[in-house]
Design a protein around this nucleic acid. Structure first.
Lengths: 96, 96
DNA sequence: GCAGTAATTAGAAATTTATCTAATTATCTA
DNA sequence: TAGATAATTAGATAAATTTCTAATTACTGC
């Protein structure tokens, strides 16, 4: 896991929206792109960043390329975050 | 919590290093800066970004300004992440 | 092989971000 | 109050990022 790549990938709102779209299951590049105003070329750039961070996986299916979420990275990321912030017992939900 | 501000703040390696330095407890701007090559002005910019993301808190103590970690934000961030990635039972540590 | 569709890659323009030097603000001490 | 120290703010430059159009690659089906 390249920490820097993951953080940079998550820093862009369009890329986070892509990840959210993939929650419902794998989608082709075109299906993902339908939800955004930007061009396919720009989308493709974002896919590259997400792939480099290992946040998504791709698989060619004939004419299409199918994207899916790589959930295992969230575990790595969780480790990094708990390393970045001091432990506090693990309770959550009392702030807001 | 402004999600975008937090992600953007964490996207820079210098800022993550600042957060790590603060793990040991509160430090003055100068003490933090001693560990980095960049100028105080640049550091100050990073502090601004971290403050805007509510990741650090500041307090003036006489001539000094003391920075400390705001751990509560990690809880908000955890929520965002678990929202961004599908739930997977909650176990961690089996991937390497 | 050729036309059509899906997606990426190439190259450039516009925006944002990180960094610098110089100037300013705030505080301490004599 | 004046000089020294800590830190920020202002303004500029350099580097990185996002986005675009145009061209290219990969596959389908005739």
């Amino acid at each position: 896991m390249k920490q820097q790549d993951v953080f940079k990938a998550l820093a862009d709102p369009t890329r986070r929206a892509i990840l959210k779209r993939l929650q419902g299951g794998a989608l082709t590049a075109g299906e993902i792109g339908a939800a955004f105003e930007i061009t396919g070329a720009s989308l493709s750039h974002h896919f590259t960043v997400l792939k480099q961070a290992d946040l998504v996986r791709t698989e060619r299916r004939g004419q299409y390329i199918v994207y899916s979420l790589n959930s295992t990275v969230v575990e790595d990321l969780a480790r990094v975050l708990f390393d970045l912030f001091p432990a506090r017992g693990g309770r959550t939900g009392d702030k807001s």
